[in-house]
């Protein structure tokens, strides 16, 4: 299948933080996300802990179960094995780091159960 990831994950992509600062995707740090979310009126950062990683019926995909936020709401997402998530204090991580590096040139750690990923939710769900 044509399994192209969004081009902003490609090494060298220019990312604009909420304060206007430009950084390359591979240079982003946990603080960049936290500070950008602080500025945002609508978005907030939530911690999403990887609870399970299962294989999918879709080739080259996995189903990742997260426990999201303080209420530990269970959320499942199906993504390609090379899809990178940003792990708190660790950086980009995917289920198949070799493939991520091969396809995107983005250095990745191995995403594992127990890792806490940065995710977004709305500040007010009312």
């Amino acid at each position: 299948p044509s399994s192209a990831l969004p081009s902003y994950f490609m090494k060298g992509s220019i990312i604009q933080l909420a304060d206007g600062e430009l950084k390359r995707v591979e240079d982003l740090r946990t603080e960049d996300f936290l500070q950008s979310a602080e500025v945002s009126k609508e978005l907030k950062i939530d911690s999403s802990t990887v609870e399970r990683i299962d294989s999918s019926r879709t080739p080259d995909a996995v189903i990742i179960q997260f426990s999201v936020g303080e209420h530990k709401v269970q959320v499942c997402v199906e993504v390609l094995v090379e899809y990178p998530f940003f792990v708190f204090g660790q950086g980009w991580s995917s289920c198949c780091p070799d493939r991520t590096t091969q396809l995107l040139a983005l250095s990745c750690a191995k995403l594992s159960v127990g890792d806490v990923c940065i995710s977004l939710t709305l500040k007010s769900l009312r």
């Binding site: 992509s13 933080l17 936020g69 997402v77």
Partner: peptide, 19 residues
């Protein structure tokens, strides 16, 4: 050169809360 907003890179995992 395209510039992408920071939040593009973060998955939006929105739980449906009932409280």
């Amino acid at each position: 050169v395209p510039v992408f907003p920071w939040h593009s890179l973060v998955p939006f995992l929105a739980p449906t809360q009932s409280d």
